[in-house]
């Protein structure tokens, strides 16, 4: 099931957990759980597109974004965003 999830993620460009849940016939909550497990195992990585570019997802009022002069007008919303890693690609033999 995790391999199937990796294949589905790789098959598209940007998918939501709702899209994937529908494709796999499971709930979005289960998709999120599996995505977290894949992050833990190194098959997916969580991406931080915010100003800090650190590995951790920043919050606007804490962490590396707290001193940012543009934080009030920054459109960054700490939405979870994952992408497949090289290990993930290898696992599905790409």
């Amino acid at each position: 099931m995790l391999t199937e999830l990796l294949r589905i993620i790789y098959g598209g460009n940007l998918r939501t957990q709702h899209d994937i849940a529908q494709l796999m016939g499971i709930s979005p909550a289960l998709v999120s759980m599996m995505a977290n497990q894949l992050v833990h195992q190194g098959y997916l990585e969580e991406i931080n597109p915010g100003c800090s570019c650190t590995d951790e997802l920043p919050q606007k009022d804490e962490g590396p974004c707290s001193d940012c002069p543009t934080k009030k007008v920054c459109g960054f919303d700490p939405t979870h965003l994952w992408t497949i890693t090289e290990k993930g690609k290898r696992a599905i033999s790409i």
Binding site: L14, C51, T70, C74, G75, L81, T83
Partner: peptide
């Protein structure tokens, strides 16, 4: 597409963090 779209999305708030966001 690819990772370029992420900083581009940030740009709708402010271009400064968007330019910084290209580090990914």
């Amino acid at each position: 597409h690819g990772k370029s779209f992420l900083p581009i999305l940030l740009g709708f708030g402010c271009n400064v963090p968007a330019v910084l966001g290209t580090r990914i």
